[in-house]
């Protein structure tokens, strides 16, 4: 009852001290209960399955260990040396670089152009957006399998196109020259819709009056686009670049059904390299070293990028 009176008093301009004293006592107990009940599950799960494994990866990477018993064979930094001496590691790193380059040079302009068209209201715009977005929610495994059919040199779509021109169809995924190219095409196909949706969401949030003002002041459509719309989209572009890079660094599911990283490691990404060399052979120390290198790349990149390009967000 006392509390009810306390809440009424500030209305009567009786000063602010009284209600605060009345409320603070019981509500602190309540707050304490919430903290004790509500935070630990999340923190525990996160610490146990996300943070600790990263720390342990750093620890295990110092051992030559196959995962059975306890790690005893300490070899210092040798695992890192082995990783850096493997040619396949540098190939994988190069492939991740290629994915990033293609994302920036082809996927991003494509997504932006489509977004500029499909953000307008016209019949079918929404249906087209959904159609282009569809590949993004399709499972990577399914996408990879579908495209390994498309690329199949005997039965696939590519093969039948080649045959109509009377040429002998290539086995794109089986050649070291073309396997990565084929994977890159699938990556663009799968992810451009996501970036397009990011841009559409941003375009719909834009202040239309700015474009109208520019048009009234005599700017042509393309001038307004170039000098008003695109600069307003810079935050989203930076974000899209960020996602393209982070996504490339963790690409795995798509590569497995297409090539498994082959032939001759020519289409490995960092993660498929980690899988093929660490996990599938249970070389825990070696695999952990690859994991730690990948972790360092991701975290360094994320912090630098945030510091340089996304200061205001």
């Amino acid at each position: 009852m006392a509390r009810r009176i306390a809440i009424a008093s500030p209305v009567g301009a009786a000063g602010e001290a009284a209600p605060q004293v009345a409320v603070r006592g019981p509500s602190w107990d309540g707050r304490f209960t919430v903290l004790i009940l509500f935070l630990p599950p999340a923190l525990l799960l996160f610490t146990l399955f996300v943070v600790l494994p990263i720390g342990e990866a750093a620890w295990y990477s110092g051992f030559n260990w196959n995962g059975f018993g306890r790690p005893t064979n300490w070899i210092g930094f040798d695992n890192y040396r082995f990783v850096l001496e493997t040619r396949a590691f540098w190939l994988a790193l190069r492939n991740n670089g290629l994915i990033i380059a293609v994302s920036l040079a082809i996927q991003l302009p494509l997504a932006l152009t489509l977004a500029l068209i499909l953000a307008e209201r016209f019949r079918g715009a929404v249906a087209l957006r959904m159609l282009f977005f569809m590949p993004y929610i399709l499972a990577e495994i399914a996408t990879g399998l579908i495209f390994s059919f498309v690329y199949d040199g005997d039965y696939g779509l590519v093969a039948s196109i080649w045959r109509t021109f009377g040429a002998e169809p290539p086995h794109l995924l089986a050649s070291t020259d073309t396997a990565m190219l084929a994977v890159l095409i699938v990556i663009v196909w799968k992810y451009f819709g996501f970036h397009m949706m990011l841009f559409i969401a941003a375009l719909q949030g834009l202040d239309k009056s700015l474009v109208e003002a520019a048009r009234i002041d005599g700017a042509t459509r393309s001038q307004a686009l170039r000098h008003v719309v695109i600069p307003l989209l810079y935050p989203t572009i930076r974000l899209s670049v960020f996602f393209a890079i982070v996504g490339s660094l963790q690409l795995f599911d798509l590569v497995m059904p297409l090539t498994r990283g082959g032939p001759a490691d020519s289409s490995n990404t960092m993660v498929s390299f980690l899988y093929n060399n660490g996990i599938s052979r249970m070389r825990v120390g070696y695999g952990s070293a690859i994991g730690v290198i990948l972790f360092v790349i991701c975290v360094t990149f994320a912090f630098t990028y945030k510091r340089w390009f996304m200061r205001d967000e």
Binding site: F46, P53, I54, A57, G67
Partner: peptide
Amino acid sequence: MLLSYLTLGLLFPAATAVLPLFIK
């Protein structure tokens, strides 16, 4: 501080620690 601790999870993919995770 706790919130930024949790958001560390956004920075790296699950794959980096998948071997220790397997052992855990």
